[in-house]
Protein backbone atom coordinates (compact mmCIF):
# COMPACT_ATOMS: atom_id res chain seq x y z
CA UNK A 1 0.00 0.00 0.00
CA UNK A 2 2.70 2.41 1.05
CA UNK A 3 4.48 1.68 -2.17
CA UNK A 4 1.50 2.55 -4.29
CA UNK A 5 1.38 5.95 -2.64
CA UNK A 6 5.08 6.47 -3.26
CA UNK A 7 4.62 5.34 -6.85
CA UNK A 8 1.95 8.00 -7.29
CA UNK A 9 4.21 10.68 -5.80
CA UNK A 10 6.96 9.54 -8.16
CA UNK A 11 4.64 9.65 -11.17
CA UNK A 12 3.38 13.11 -10.20
CA UNK A 13 6.94 14.43 -9.85
CA UNK A 14 7.80 12.79 -13.16
CA UNK A 15 4.92 14.51 -14.93
CA UNK A 16 5.96 17.88 -13.49
CA UNK A 17 9.54 17.34 -14.64
CA UNK A 18 8.43 16.21 -18.11
CA UNK A 19 6.16 19.23 -18.55
CA UNK A 20 8.93 21.56 -17.34
CA UNK A 21 11.44 20.01 -19.73
CA UNK A 22 9.19 19.80 -22.76
CA UNK A 23 6.99 22.89 -22.48
CA UNK A 24 8.88 25.04 -19.96
CA UNK A 25 11.10 26.95 -22.42
CA UNK A 26 8.06 27.87 -24.55
CA UNK A 27 6.21 28.95 -21.43
CA UNK A 28 8.86 31.44 -20.33
CA UNK A 29 9.29 32.62 -23.92
CA UNK A 30 12.89 33.71 -23.35
CA UNK A 31 16.22 32.60 -24.71
CA UNK A 32 18.54 30.59 -22.48
CA UNK A 33 21.69 32.30 -23.72
CA UNK A 34 20.66 35.98 -23.83
CA UNK A 35 22.72 37.97 -21.35
CA UNK A 36 21.71 41.18 -19.66
CA UNK A 37 24.31 42.83 -17.49
CA UNK A 38 21.85 45.44 -16.21
CA UNK A 39 19.92 42.72 -14.47
CA UNK A 40 22.20 40.13 -12.89
CA UNK A 41 21.72 37.90 -9.82
CA UNK A 42 18.04 38.70 -9.36
CA UNK A 43 16.14 36.61 -6.79
CA UNK A 44 13.12 34.53 -7.85
CA UNK A 45 9.84 36.29 -8.69
CA UNK A 46 11.63 39.41 -9.85
CA UNK A 47 10.08 41.25 -12.78
CA UNK A 48 9.83 39.05 -15.87
CA UNK A 49 11.93 36.29 -14.33
CA UNK A 50 10.09 33.53 -12.48
CA UNK A 51 13.27 32.10 -10.90
CA UNK A 52 15.31 35.31 -11.19
CA UNK A 53 18.51 35.64 -13.20
CA UNK A 54 22.04 34.26 -12.99
CA UNK A 55 25.36 36.10 -12.79
CA UNK A 56 25.19 37.02 -16.49
CA UNK A 57 21.59 38.18 -16.32
CA UNK A 58 20.24 35.14 -18.12
CA UNK A 59 16.74 33.97 -17.26
CA UNK A 60 17.13 31.21 -14.68
CA UNK A 61 13.74 29.60 -15.34
CA UNK A 62 14.43 29.12 -19.04
CA UNK A 63 17.89 27.78 -18.31
CA UNK A 64 16.56 25.38 -15.69
CA UNK A 65 13.87 24.08 -18.05
CA UNK A 66 16.34 23.64 -20.92
CA UNK A 67 18.73 21.98 -18.46
CA UNK A 68 15.98 19.54 -17.50
CA UNK A 69 15.44 18.88 -21.19
CA UNK A 70 19.14 18.13 -21.68
CA UNK A 71 19.07 15.78 -18.68
CA UNK A 72 16.00 14.03 -20.06
CA UNK A 73 17.60 13.58 -23.49
CA UNK A 74 20.82 12.21 -22.00
CA UNK A 75 18.86 9.90 -19.69
CA UNK A 76 16.70 8.70 -22.59
CA UNK A 77 19.72 8.05 -24.81
CA UNK A 78 21.62 6.22 -22.09
CA UNK A 79 18.59 4.20 -21.06
CA UNK A 80 17.64 3.19 -24.58
CA UNK A 81 21.19 2.15 -25.34
CA UNK A 82 21.82 0.27 -22.11
CA UNK A 83 18.45 -1.44 -22.00
CA UNK A 84 18.53 -2.75 -25.57
CA UNK A 85 22.20 -3.71 -25.48
CA UNK A 86 22.00 -5.05 -21.92
CA UNK A 87 19.01 -7.29 -22.65
CA UNK A 88 20.47 -8.59 -25.91
CA UNK A 89 23.91 -9.26 -24.44
CA UNK A 90 22.54 -10.81 -21.27
CA UNK A 91 20.13 -13.07 -23.17
CA UNK A 92 22.75 -14.19 -25.67
CA UNK A 93 25.19 -15.02 -22.86
CA UNK A 94 22.60 -16.83 -20.79
CA UNK A 95 21.09 -18.82 -23.64
CA UNK A 96 24.11 -19.77 -25.67
CA UNK A 97 26.41 -20.53 -22.75
CA UNK A 98 29.86 -22.03 -23.34
CA UNK A 99 32.75 -19.84 -24.42
CA UNK A 100 30.39 -17.11 -25.63
CA UNK A 101 28.97 -16.81 -22.13
CA UNK A 102 32.41 -16.87 -20.57
CA UNK A 103 33.82 -14.16 -22.79
CA UNK A 104 30.74 -11.94 -22.43
CA UNK A 105 30.78 -12.38 -18.69
CA UNK A 106 34.46 -11.54 -18.59
CA UNK A 107 33.91 -8.32 -20.56
CA UNK A 108 30.84 -7.34 -18.54
CA UNK A 109 32.53 -7.94 -15.18
CA UNK A 110 35.52 -5.98 -16.40
CA UNK A 111 33.47 -2.89 -17.24
CA UNK A 112 31.22 -3.22 -14.21
CA UNK A 113 34.21 -3.22 -11.88
CA UNK A 114 34.98 0.45 -12.52
CA UNK A 115 33.18 3.42 -10.99
CA UNK A 116 31.03 5.29 -13.46
CA UNK A 117 32.54 8.73 -12.90
CA UNK A 118 36.07 7.45 -13.44
CA UNK A 119 35.07 5.73 -16.69
CA UNK A 120 33.40 8.92 -17.88
CA UNK A 121 36.44 11.05 -17.02
CA UNK A 122 38.63 8.63 -18.99
CA UNK A 123 36.24 8.83 -21.95
CA UNK A 124 36.35 12.60 -21.76
CA UNK A 125 40.13 12.37 -21.77
CA UNK A 126 40.01 10.29 -24.94
CA UNK A 127 37.20 11.97 -26.88
CA UNK A 128 37.25 15.47 -25.44
CA UNK A 129 34.54 17.09 -23.32
CA UNK A 130 30.88 17.07 -24.26
CA UNK A 131 27.68 15.14 -23.86
CA UNK A 132 28.66 12.39 -26.28
CA UNK A 133 31.43 10.76 -24.19
CA UNK A 134 29.21 11.10 -21.12
CA UNK A 135 26.37 9.22 -22.83
CA UNK A 136 28.79 6.60 -24.11
CA UNK A 137 30.47 6.04 -20.73
CA UNK A 138 27.28 5.94 -18.67
CA UNK A 139 25.61 3.80 -21.34
CA UNK A 140 28.50 1.34 -21.32
CA UNK A 141 28.58 0.88 -17.54
CA UNK A 142 24.77 0.63 -17.33
CA UNK A 143 24.74 -1.90 -20.17
CA UNK A 144 27.11 -4.09 -18.21
CA UNK A 145 24.98 -3.75 -15.09
CA UNK A 146 21.77 -4.69 -16.91
CA UNK A 147 23.41 -7.53 -18.86
CA UNK A 148 24.60 -9.09 -15.59
CA UNK A 149 21.11 -9.25 -14.15
CA UNK A 150 19.45 -10.34 -17.41
CA UNK A 151 21.94 -13.18 -17.75
CA UNK A 152 21.11 -14.36 -14.24
CA UNK A 153 17.38 -14.23 -14.99
CA UNK A 154 17.90 -16.23 -18.19
CA UNK A 155 19.85 -18.91 -16.34
CA UNK A 156 16.96 -19.23 -13.89
CA UNK A 157 14.39 -19.27 -16.69
CA UNK A 158 16.23 -22.01 -18.57
CA UNK A 159 15.43 -24.40 -15.73
CA UNK A 160 11.70 -23.71 -15.91
CA UNK A 161 9.37 -26.28 -17.42
CA UNK A 162 7.84 -24.08 -20.09
CA UNK A 163 11.22 -23.32 -21.62
CA UNK A 164 12.19 -26.97 -21.49
CA UNK A 165 8.87 -27.83 -23.10
CA UNK A 166 9.55 -25.32 -25.86
CA UNK A 167 12.94 -26.92 -26.46
CA UNK A 168 11.37 -30.37 -26.49
CA UNK A 169 8.77 -29.09 -28.94
CA UNK A 170 11.59 -28.35 -31.35
CA UNK A 171 11.37 -24.53 -31.38
CA UNK A 172 14.50 -22.69 -32.47
CA UNK A 173 16.61 -21.06 -29.77
CA UNK A 174 15.94 -17.66 -31.26
CA UNK A 175 12.19 -18.17 -31.15
CA UNK A 176 12.32 -19.36 -27.56
CA UNK A 177 14.41 -16.36 -26.59
CA UNK A 178 12.14 -13.88 -28.29
CA UNK A 179 8.66 -15.29 -27.71
CA UNK A 180 9.04 -17.08 -24.39
CA UNK A 181 11.97 -15.72 -22.43
CA UNK A 182 11.90 -12.05 -23.42
CA UNK A 183 8.43 -11.25 -21.99
CA UNK A 184 9.51 -12.77 -18.68
CA UNK A 185 12.68 -10.75 -18.58
CA UNK A 186 11.17 -7.42 -19.48
CA UNK A 187 9.67 -6.82 -16.02
CA UNK A 188 12.85 -7.19 -13.98
CA UNK A 189 14.80 -5.38 -16.70
CA UNK A 190 12.42 -2.40 -16.51
CA UNK A 191 12.72 -2.23 -12.74
CA UNK A 192 16.48 -2.30 -12.97
CA UNK A 193 16.51 0.24 -15.77
CA UNK A 194 14.53 2.76 -13.74
CA UNK A 195 17.27 2.57 -11.12
CA UNK A 196 19.89 3.24 -13.78
CA UNK A 197 17.97 6.22 -15.16
CA UNK A 198 18.63 7.85 -11.79
CA UNK A 199 22.29 6.90 -12.06
CA UNK A 200 22.46 8.45 -15.54
CA UNK A 201 20.89 11.74 -14.41
CA UNK A 202 23.25 12.08 -11.44
CA UNK A 203 26.30 11.13 -13.50
CA UNK A 204 25.52 13.58 -16.28
CA UNK A 205 24.99 16.44 -13.86
CA UNK A 206 28.11 15.57 -11.85
CA UNK A 207 30.26 15.48 -14.99
CA UNK A 208 28.80 18.71 -16.29
CA UNK A 209 29.47 20.17 -12.86
CA UNK A 210 33.20 19.47 -13.11
CA UNK A 211 33.23 20.80 -16.68
CA UNK A 212 33.43 17.57 -18.64
CA UNK A 213 29.79 17.27 -19.74
CA UNK A 214 27.59 19.77 -21.56
CA UNK A 215 29.61 22.72 -22.87
CA UNK A 216 28.39 26.33 -22.68
CA UNK A 217 26.26 28.02 -23.83
CA UNK A 218 24.06 24.90 -23.72
CA UNK A 219 22.81 24.85 -20.13
CA UNK A 220 22.93 21.69 -18.07
CA UNK A 221 21.75 21.49 -14.49
CA UNK A 222 25.13 20.38 -13.16
CA UNK A 223 26.94 23.17 -14.97
CA UNK A 224 24.42 25.73 -13.70
CA UNK A 225 25.09 24.61 -10.13
CA UNK A 226 28.80 25.02 -10.86
CA UNK A 227 28.27 28.54 -12.23
CA UNK A 228 26.12 29.49 -9.27
CA UNK A 229 28.64 28.42 -6.66
CA UNK A 230 30.73 31.56 -7.11
CA UNK A 231 27.78 33.75 -6.20
CA UNK A 232 26.36 31.89 -3.23
CA UNK A 233 26.38 34.98 -1.02
CA UNK A 234 24.76 37.23 -3.63
CA UNK A 235 22.10 34.92 -4.96
CA UNK A 236 22.17 31.30 -3.88
CA UNK A 237 19.10 30.54 -6.03
CA UNK A 238 21.22 30.27 -9.17
CA UNK A 239 22.79 27.16 -7.61
CA UNK A 240 19.96 25.83 -5.45
CA UNK A 241 17.16 25.85 -8.05
CA UNK A 242 18.93 23.69 -10.68
CA UNK A 243 20.09 21.44 -7.84
CA UNK A 244 16.50 21.03 -6.67
CA UNK A 245 15.51 20.15 -10.23
CA UNK A 246 18.08 17.32 -10.23
CA UNK A 247 16.85 16.07 -6.87
CA UNK A 248 13.25 16.10 -8.15
CA UNK A 249 14.18 14.13 -11.25
CA UNK A 250 16.18 11.55 -9.33
CA UNK A 251 13.53 11.18 -6.61
CA UNK A 252 10.86 10.74 -9.26
CA UNK A 253 12.65 7.89 -11.06
CA UNK A 254 13.68 6.22 -7.81
CA UNK A 255 10.12 6.24 -6.49
CA UNK A 256 8.75 4.99 -9.80
CA UNK A 257 11.41 2.26 -9.79
CA UNK A 258 10.50 1.17 -6.26
CA UNK A 259 6.83 1.09 -7.21
CA UNK A 260 7.48 -0.89 -10.38
CA UNK A 261 9.59 -3.32 -8.42
CA UNK A 262 6.63 -4.07 -6.22
CA UNK A 263 4.33 -4.52 -9.17
CA UNK A 264 6.64 -6.65 -11.28
CA UNK A 265 8.75 -8.63 -8.93
CA UNK A 266 8.27 -8.78 -5.17
CA UNK A 267 11.22 -11.15 -5.01
CA UNK A 268 13.64 -8.37 -5.85
CA UNK A 269 12.80 -6.41 -2.73
CA UNK A 270 15.75 -7.65 -0.72
CA UNK A 271 18.31 -7.11 -3.45
CA UNK A 272 21.50 -5.30 -2.60
CA UNK A 273 20.54 -2.13 -4.42
CA UNK A 274 17.02 -2.66 -3.22
CA UNK A 275 14.62 -1.09 -0.99
CA UNK A 276 13.00 -1.45 2.35
CA UNK A 277 9.91 -3.58 2.48
Amino acid sequence: MRHNKLLLVGLALGVIVLIAGVLGPQFTGQDYATQNFQNVNQPPLSEGHLFGTDSLGRDLATRTFVGIRVSLIVAAGVTLMSMVAGIVIGMVAGFLGGWIDRSIRGAVDFVWGFPLILVAVLFAAGFGEGLFPVILAVGLVNTAAIARVVRGEVLALKEREFIEAAHAGGLSTFRIMWRHAFPNILGPALVLTSYYVAVAIIAESALSFIGLGAQPPLPSLGQMVADGRNFLRLNHWAATIPGLAIVMMVLSVSLIGDGLRDVFDPRLRHEAKGVDD
Binding site: A198, S205, G228, L232, T240, V247
Partner: peptide, 26 residues
Protein backbone atom coordinates in the same frame (compact mmCIF):
# COMPACT_ATOMS: atom_id res chain seq x y z
CA UNK B 1 16.68 6.42 9.39
CA UNK B 2 15.18 5.07 6.17
CA UNK B 3 14.04 8.53 5.06
CA UNK B 4 17.58 9.76 5.58
CA UNK B 5 18.82 6.78 3.59
CA UNK B 6 16.50 7.34 0.62
CA UNK B 7 17.30 11.05 0.67
CA UNK B 8 21.03 10.32 0.84
CA UNK B 9 20.83 8.34 -2.37
CA UNK B 10 18.68 10.86 -4.27
CA UNK B 11 20.69 14.00 -3.50
CA UNK B 12 23.64 14.40 -5.87
CA UNK B 13 26.80 14.81 -3.81
CA UNK B 14 28.03 17.93 -5.58
CA UNK B 15 24.80 19.74 -4.83
CA UNK B 16 24.91 18.63 -1.22
CA UNK B 17 28.47 19.93 -1.15
CA UNK B 18 27.29 23.35 -2.32
CA UNK B 19 24.45 23.46 0.20
CA UNK B 20 26.97 22.58 2.90
CA UNK B 21 29.38 25.28 1.74
CA UNK B 22 26.59 27.81 1.53
CA UNK B 23 25.20 27.03 5.00
CA UNK B 24 28.27 26.10 7.04
CA UNK B 25 30.77 28.43 5.39
CA UNK B 26 28.84 31.41 3.93
Amino acid sequence: VMTFSIGGMAVPNFWLALLAIWLFAS
